[in-house]
Each structure stands twice: as structure tokens, then as C-alpha cells.
Write a protein that binds this DNA or RNA. Structure first.
Lengths: 190, 190, 190, 190
DNA sequence: ACACTCGGGACTACCCGTTAAT
DNA sequence: ATTAACGGGTAGTCCCGAGTGT
């Protein structure tokens, strides 16, 4: 249910009342409990669908693709309430009982693929550890998202991510790659 | 109340039932409502005290001090339940009604001081923007804390922060400073 | 709910605890809050139903009918807990938040119809103002009801109303009507 | 305490929270409970003082005096919060546990004195029963007060009482007295 | 004698996520 | 898939007293 995503995204898991979800969706309680066995189950469904309707940018893997992906996600977080809910619920794991480190690992895995490609294309500096870097990118994205949400309701999230990359790139990319990378100041798509 | 910090830290704001706080603290409702006029007020008090009992590492300002501070905070987050609660409530701002971007800004400000000192001591590379970097450090710390909490209950948080710095330093510090910086792999105090 | 009427009638609005209503009705809180969204809403429902199950005496309109109605209401107030509750809540309007002067106006309107009929049948003395008299009858009834409830738990209410009329009639009715009017001393139905 | 009178008058007995009284009075709980042993006791004290600071109109007893008294009381009810509280608490007897029919009886007694004087001065029609009439006056006053409070916050109470008397007088007073009686339309003092 | 801080519990109206009946 | 209900939970208020000074 799409209404659930909105409410979870706005109020968090425990702050989201089922009734609010129901009446925003225009459904009755029984109807929902036919499809989802519990609130937790509903949240799980939202999480699953949250990653579903993302259209990650195409393009050959590598550092540039990784950057493009994060900027795309940043922009997506501004309007896509499913994705917002996914992120919110991921952050709150533990309150919700939905102990699934999955989300973060999944993204780290995705990023790692790009980083490995980057390595094999010689884009990365030798001292960079791909696994660590993937974790750092996930962590940085998460943290900047939280801050941006609180301070500007995510309006400046793409800019923040862009700044993050501009800061990080010199430490990870070889000079020639670095010169070729495109990191729009405002996070707009290339 | 110290019990409140624990419960807020564990369950978040809306997940924390006042009754649980009360019975963990061994006091009654009336007693609490004499000192704090509402749950929100209680949370505010926790936030305020959360930053109070930190003993930030001494030492001349600069990049090394900034690193030491973040590592200290990482270690502190492992046992200090007041600080845990402060961070948790900061992340949840909005659900709680406690709209105070304050916490993040306050830390960014602290970090900025060190960065400015670092700049004037010639520790920073010319292309680094201090304000942006301060935000990124706060964001990175926040995000890594969230991930670490979920995956290992913060057991590996200092290591993650250390890795974060090892990754970041080449991009911000001039080579001689970089060589002199101490970033213990395990995040232990110097 | 019929239990609500009893408790409201006995204790007034703010004195009536929802729990008392619930356990007297033998239902649970959730059950009630499914049907009524709040205590106020419940009270409103009681008020509405209070006037519903009254069987006002039939008969051609006029002074005699008006008297019969008030005596009937007096007798009804002795056992009909719905009506009791309606009157009680009407008196307390303002504490309850149910600002609806409606009840009193409604009755004054009813009475006025009879008085207008009486006028057109030549039963009223020329100096009598129907509107004012209607208000006075409502007020007198209300006040006597309050007194009777306190002093004798409404046991003597019909008698008091009868006395009220015996006192009032000479001032409002023309002599021949006056002679024909029946006002049983004990307020019993004709 | 004068603040208690206001709050009781506004909210009724059970609707009046002690804390509200206390903070309006600018006192603390302990201070109050030294002087009054309970809320009920406080209410009793308010009732007692409520009749204290009334300056009933002087003048020889009789029908005119009775009328003057009721009009004076009507005007007093508009601003004198002690008296308002007294009336309010009198109406609510039973909720409050303060079962003292006293108030009403006391007033009926006062009125009866005037009526007896009126009788001995030949002002009353022969069929009038003084005791009954006294009760009716008390009841009428009470009821009209309730209605006026709800509809106009007592702004038109004196007018209503005046109308009450204009209606009642023909039924109780002998013609010559009736002609001499002064009942200002707006209830203003003579 | 008087006042206040601090606390105790039971109670308030109301909402929670969930489930039977049908 | 709906209507009705459950029962425990929500934050918060109630009136009141015990202990501590002034």
C-alpha cells in the first residue's frame, strides 16, 4: 500500500498509527489484515517495494556510475515516498523488530561492484580498500540524508552528496580519472 | 532521569513508553510529571544532559584533535547511554516534535573550529572547504553510527570511524600532516 | 448506550468517568470508541436519544395540553434515565463543551405552539406575551426540577409542577378556561 | 480563596481541577491543604462565603422587597464570582458530595418572610399559598438563571427575572398592590 | 502556625494493533 | 472484505499527603 509508505516515511515505524494509514488509504482494517498479517509485515512489504521502482542510471560501471547512482538516489529521496519510507525504516531497524541488516548490505554490495570495476579499470588509488570505501559511501549517504532531512527537508540533499564526492574523490581516484569525473554542483542528472 | 536516556536510546522517542521509563527508574508518574511537564520535555532534558558529561580529549586544536574527538565520541557511544539517547533523538527530530536542528549544528560548529585551526596551521589542502568538510564529518559519523548500531550494536563503530578518516585524510591533509596523524586501527585512545 | 445515560444523569458530564460507564454497560473501551469518537460525542448521542423515546400526551393544543405535557415530563423525569441525562447535560452545557442551546430552545418552541393555539382559542389573558411565557415555563420547570432532584430525588416533582401551574394559571388564563383546566394535585395523568 | 470561586463557577465542581485553582491563585498545593482539608472542604468554604458579601436591598418587607431582592441577585450573578460559584455548586449538589439542601431552603426561607409580611399587609390574593410560592420563586429564579447563563452568559438575566415577575404578579398580588409595584423592564435597581 | 517542594498512585480520556463473527 | 469488538497501552491529570523548612 502506497499510503503506508507515506506515513511510515513521515512518522517512523512506531510513530505511524495503523489507523492513519488506513484512512489515508481509504481502506478498512480487515481489508488490510487480509493482505498483510501485521504492521510489521506491512512495513516489510513497504521496504521491499521501496527499492523496486528505482530506475538506476545506466552506464558502464565504475566510479562515475557510482557517483551518478548516489546522486540519483539523492534526488529520488526528495519525492519518492516509497524510497523515503525504505530509508526511514532501515534507519529504525530494531525499534521495528525488523532486524534485517539487509538494506545497507545490499547497497554496499551494489556500490562494491562499481568499485571493483573501477579498480580493474585502474581508476582507484592503490591504497583504497574497496570494501571499506563502499561502507563509507553508504554511511556518508545515510548520515547526510538524515541531516538534510532535518534541516531542509531534503531540499539540499543532492548538493550535499555532490559536496561529499568532491571531497572524497581526491582521496580515492587517480588523477586522470579525477579530472574526467562529472560531479554537478547541484546534483542534477548528467 | 537516567532511565529515560536508556529507554529513549533503545526504542526511540515514540517507541519509548513512559511507563517503561517509570518502572525502570523506579518512580511513579506523579513524581516524574512534577519535574518534567511532558514526555517531550523529558526528552529535551535528556538531550541537554547528553552532551554534558562528555570529556572531550584535550590537546591543541587541529586535524589530529578533530580525529581524536570523533574517535572518542565513537567509543563513548558504546556505553554512555545518555549520549546514545542524544544521538537517537537527534536522528528522530520531527517525530518527536523537538524541532531543533541544534545538535547537528552544534557539532558542526565544534568541528569547524578545529578545521579552521588546521587551516591556519597549514594542515589542510588548499581545495578543501572547511564548512563543507565539517558537515561531511558530522554526516559521515552519523551514518556510520547508524549502520554500526544495526549491524554490530556499535561494537565496530570506532574501527569504522577510523577507516573513515583513513579514507578521508589523503583528500584533506597536506602530505607532511598526513604522515604525522595517528589513526589507531581499532579506534583506541592515544 | 443506555448505561451512559444513567451515569451522566447521576454524576453530570465531567463527573462521569468513562470507565464507570463502560463497566456498567459491560463493554470495553475499544468497543465504545468504535461507535463514538469521544466522550463528548457520546454525550451528544445521549442528548439526541433523550428526547426520542418520549410519548408526549396527545390532545388538541392549548393550555391544557401544555400543562399535560409538563406534568408528563415531570413524571418521566422520575424513571426515564435517558431523559434525566438529557436534562442534566442541558443544564451543564459549557462544562461539556457541547454548546448547544438547542435543548431549551426546542422546548420553548414546543410550548410556544401550544400557547399560540391557546391565544387563538381565546384562552389567554390579553396582557400575556406568549414568547416570554414559554421561556418562563421552561425556566420554571428546569429550576423546580433541580430543586426537587436535590431535596427528594425528584419524588415530588409532579406535585411541584402542579403547584407551579396552579400559581401561574390565574395570571395567564381567562376565567372560563381557568375553571375548565385540570391540574391534578399529585401530577397524575388525566 | 477567591480564585476557587471563579474556577468552580466556570467549570463546576468536578470539572474544576485543583491545580487550575492553585495556579490562578498563585499558591501551591501544600499551602491550600493547610487551610482546607480537601477539595470538598474548599467548595464548602466557597459556598459559605458566597452568600456573605451580598448587600441585599433594604426596605420594608413585602412583595416589592422580594422583587427587589431577586432583581438584585440577578444583577449580582452577572459579576460576583463568589455568588456565581455558590449557585453553580448548589445546582450540582450530589456530584460534589456536598449534600446540603441548605442553600435553596435558606433562600426559600428568606422569601417566605417577605411573603408572610405581604400577606399580613394584605398584598396577596387569598388563594396564594406562601410556602408554595416561595418555592416557585426559588425554582423559577434558578431555572431562568441556568437558561440565561447558557444562552447569553447571564447578560439578560435581570430582564428575564423582571419578565417572570410581570407574569407572576397578577396571579399573586391584589390589584392595588399590583398597581403600585415597580418592576423595571431592564431589571435596573430602583 | 504556615508554606513549599516533592512525590504517590489511581484515574483520565483516548488509541493501539489485532482478531472474531458473519 | 466489513463491522464490531477486545484488551492492554498511550500520555497525562487527579486529589492528596509526607517530609522540610521558615
Amino acid at each position: 500500500l502506497h499510503a503506508a509508505a507515506e506515513v511510515f516515511g513521515e512518522c517512523g515505524y512506531s510513530g505511524a498509527g495503523i489507523n492513519r494509514i488506513l484512512q489515508r488509504a481509504g481502506v478498512t482494517a480487515g481489508a488490510m489484515y487480509f493482505h498483510f498479517s501485521s504492521k510489521e509485515d506491512l512495513a516489510r512489504a513497504v521496504i521491499c517495494d521501496s527499492a523496486a521502482d528505482l530506475n538506476l542510471p545506466e552506464g558502464g560501471p565504475g566510479l562515475q556510475h557510482l557517483i551518478d547512482v548516489t546522486l540519483y538516489l539523492a534526488r529520488e529521496l526528495q519525492h519518492n515516498s516509497f524510497f523515503q519510507a525504505g530509508v526511514q525504516l532501515a534507519i529504525e531497524q530494531g525499534e521495528s523488530g525488523l532486524r534485517e541488516y539487509g538494506s545497507y548490505e545490499w547497497w554496499a554490495e551494489r556500490y562494491l561492484e562499481d568499485l571493483r570495476a573501477a579498480r580493474s579499470q585502474g581508476e582507484l588509488l592503490p591504497e583504497v580498500q574497496e570494501e571499506e570505501l563502499a561502507q563509507i559511501v553508504v554511511g556518508g549517504f545515510t548520515g547526510l540524508q538524515v541531516m538534510s532531512k532535518i534541516s531542509t527537508d531534503r531540499a539540499d540533499l543532492p548538493q550535499r552528496i555532490a559536496a561529499f564526492w568532491r571531497c572524497l574523490v581526491p582521496a580515492v581516484a587517480v588523477p586522470e580519472t579525477r579530472a574526467a569525473l562529472v560531479i554537478p554542483r547541484d546534483g542534477a542528472p548528467r
